[in-house]
Simulated scan of single mutants.
Amino acid sequence: MIQRPIGVGLVGFGLAGARLHAPVIAATGEFRIAAIMTSRREEAHAAWPDAAVVGDVDALIGRPEVDLVIVVSPNPTHAPVARAALAAGKHVVVDKPFVTDIADGEALIEQARSAGLVLSVYHNRRWDADFLTVRDLLQSGALGEVMLAELCWDRHRAAIKRGWREEAQDGSGLLSDLGPHLVDQMLQLFGHPDAVWADIVTQRAGAAVDDYFDLRFHYGELRVRLASSTLVAAARSRFALHGTRASFVKHGIDPQEAVLRAGGSPDQPGYGVEDARDRGMLTLADGKGHTVPTVRGDWRVFYRGVANAITNGAPAPVDPADALAGLRLIGRAREAAAAGRLVML
């Protein structure tokens, strides 16, 4: 039986591993970072002096103090690293996107089930402040029957950044980067759609991967639009939902990532609390409106759920089958874009 704290082996120590996972893991109080696989040895040693720093996956997986392997390496490596970790008897968390091939995801789910191991996917955006606020509004019935929902996530990055995300390979491009989060939020809010239309293109000069997408999902009369662009300086609303009773429009991005990117910690006061000036607006059918307090976001909930699954046998905080369902929808969206027509699901 695993004793707390649970030993974590982190595969990858780029921005995601060093800033978006490690501080969140440590702040839950139920883990210790036991080993890190990275070429950035000095940076990893400085940040986590008690962790072993190794240069390859096998060396990390082979360490007996590692109970849980977190896969934060480039997207094409997710499946082989997770497969090797499960084969060694380790629990596994994979950063999104779960896999680049649906068959690999199906095989990993079966491998984990057969071995009695926890397998989950880091869809941390389920614990974003704005998403939690929208979820609560939908559950309250304040919007009435929603007929149009738009989830947009824009950036302005005209320059092509160096790195694998901008190279033409499986798992690269904007749809593989932000698409899994948006699709997962859609599925959590509305369930599985009936059909999809999509526009996926490359707009920036010299870009080798898609940097714009506009996906339209049909749910009977309801339409859900998921959109993202790399060339939007004045970002669109992050959430806009329009129903028979009211509309809710929310700008801005959940504040947790900015805190972590800057070297902050989830333990600091006010973490996950959005500034009151950024609250969304609820507008009633008569035109009257008021702001809605934003629910506090907290990505630590995901890792607390992982700890509970490992130590108490609770369900994983994100079922990998959910992540796979989202990737299947992205695949169908690519089909729709290539065919230039609505694709029934």
Rank of each mutant, 00 (worst) to 15 (best):
V66A: 03
I330Y: 01
H91I: 14
V273S: 07
R32M: 12
M37S: 07
D194H: 11
R277V: 10
L10H: 04
Q111V: 09
I330L: 15
G191D: 05
D194E: 15
Q203R: 14
C152V: 10
A159C: 01
A285L: 08
G105V: 03
R162W: 12
E43W: 07
L189T: 11
R135E: 15
K250C: 12
A336K: 07
W299R: 10
C152N: 13
A205Y: 06
L327Y: 04
L132A: 12
L20F: 12
E274K: 12
A84L: 10
I33S: 00
N308D: 13
T311K: 02
G287L: 09
E221Q: 05
R83Q: 08
T230R: 10
P64G: 05
I200A: 04
I160H: 03
A115H: 13
D278I: 06
G17L: 02
V259E: 02
G270I: 07
Q3A: 15
V318E: 00
I61W: 01
M1W: 02
W164A: 06
A338Y: 13
F302C: 08
H218Q: 12
A339P: 05
G243Y: 06
P64R: 03
H91V: 13
G243M: 06
I200D: 01
G263A: 13
N75W: 03
R236N: 10
A159S: 13
D199G: 08
L187H: 01
S73L: 11
D130F: 07
Y219L: 11
I36A: 00
